[in-house]
Simulated assay, not measured.
Amino acid sequence: MQDPNRQAWKRWALLVGLPCAVVALGSVWLYKPDTQREAIAASAIAVLALLLFALTMPRRAAIRTRRSRASSPDDPA
């Protein structure tokens, strides 16, 4: 059986992490803005994708809480 922490990270990486990274990097590297306004918009999109990337990462405390609720008082795990 896999560690729930590892499963949460894998799920997050596929559903949130990878798309956010693609948007952030693509908006800066692939998009060539012609005006200053377009450059600011591309930068804003990259920053928002980075914030979403960082703020949605799985937390260890939430996983520990779920694990402790799932175990019974008789179970030492």
Results as ranks from 00 to 15, higher is better:
residue 73 P to R: 13
residue 48 L to Q: 01
residue 28 V to Y: 03
residue 72 S to N: 09
residue 24 A to T: 00
residue 10 K to H: 11
residue 13 A to G: 05
residue 16 V to Y: 03
residue 61 A to L: 12
residue 37 R to P: 05
residue 74 D to Q: 11
residue 26 G to H: 07
residue 68 S to P: 03
residue 22 V to R: 13
residue 21 A to S: 05
residue 9 W to I: 06
residue 61 A to V: 07
residue 77 A to H: 14
residue 48 L to N: 04
residue 34 D to K: 15
residue 67 R to K: 15
residue 5 N to D: 10
residue 10 K to F: 12
residue 21 A to G: 09
residue 51 L to P: 00
residue 70 A to W: 09
residue 70 A to L: 08
residue 67 R to Y: 11
residue 67 R to V: 13
residue 39 A to D: 01
residue 43 S to E: 06
residue 76 P to R: 07
residue 77 A to W: 12
residue 43 S to L: 07
residue 62 A to M: 10
residue 69 R to P: 02
residue 13 A to E: 13
residue 36 Q to D: 13
residue 18 L to D: 11
residue 7 Q to K: 11
residue 16 V to E: 04
residue 21 A to L: 04
residue 48 L to C: 04
residue 59 R to W: 07
residue 69 R to E: 14
residue 76 P to F: 08
residue 29 W to C: 11
residue 61 A to I: 11
residue 26 G to Y: 02
residue 36 Q to V: 06
residue 68 S to A: 12
residue 21 A to C: 08
residue 37 R to Q: 15
residue 8 A to T: 08
residue 10 K to M: 06
residue 50 L to K: 00
residue 15 L to I: 09
residue 39 A to V: 01
residue 2 Q to F: 09
residue 35 T to V: 06
residue 54 A to W: 10
residue 44 A to T: 06
residue 20 C to D: 00
residue 40 I to Q: 15
residue 40 I to T: 15
residue 48 L to Y: 01
residue 8 A to Y: 09
residue 48 L to D: 00
residue 37 R to M: 04
residue 40 I to D: 15
residue 62 A to R: 13
residue 65 T to K: 15
residue 44 A to H: 07
residue 23 V to N: 01
residue 53 F to G: 01
residue 57 M to C: 14
residue 29 W to Y: 14
residue 58 P to K: 02
residue 55 L to S: 14
residue 41 A to W: 05
residue 74 D to H: 04
residue 56 T to Y: 05
residue 16 V to I: 10
residue 60 R to P: 04
residue 12 W to Q: 02
residue 46 A to N: 02
residue 19 P to R: 09
residue 64 R to E: 13
residue 44 A to I: 11
residue 39 A to W: 01
residue 5 N to P: 01
residue 28 V to Q: 05
residue 17 G to M: 01
residue 11 R to N: 06
residue 34 D to M: 08
residue 6 R to D: 12
residue 34 D to A: 15
residue 70 A to I: 03
residue 4 P to W: 05
residue 20 C to V: 04
residue 50 L to T: 00
residue 37 R to W: 15
residue 8 A to W: 03
residue 28 V to L: 15
residue 11 R to G: 05
residue 27 S to M: 03
residue 70 A to R: 13
residue 7 Q to V: 11
residue 64 R to I: 07
residue 3 D to P: 04
residue 45 I to Y: 04
residue 18 L to N: 13
residue 51 L to R: 01
residue 48 L to S: 00
residue 31 Y to I: 10
residue 28 V to K: 01
residue 52 L to Q: 02
residue 73 P to G: 06
residue 25 L to K: 11
residue 17 G to R: 05
residue 71 S to H: 08
residue 63 I to W: 05
residue 27 S to R: 02
residue 31 Y to C: 09
residue 57 M to L: 14
residue 50 L to E: 00
residue 37 R to L: 13
residue 48 L to G: 00
residue 36 Q to L: 05
residue 77 A to N: 12
residue 12 W to H: 02
residue 31 Y to F: 15
residue 72 S to V: 06
residue 39 A to Y: 00
residue 55 L to A: 14
residue 75 D to W: 04
residue 50 L to Q: 01
residue 52 L to A: 01
residue 3 D to F: 07
residue 44 A to R: 15
residue 44 A to M: 14
residue 58 P to M: 04
residue 22 V to S: 08
residue 16 V to S: 03
residue 58 P to N: 06
residue 6 R to A: 08
residue 48 L to K: 01
residue 67 R to P: 05
residue 70 A to Q: 06
residue 43 S to T: 09
residue 30 L to F: 14
residue 9 W to E: 06
residue 29 W to N: 11
residue 39 A to I: 03
residue 29 W to V: 12
residue 12 W to S: 02
residue 39 A to H: 03
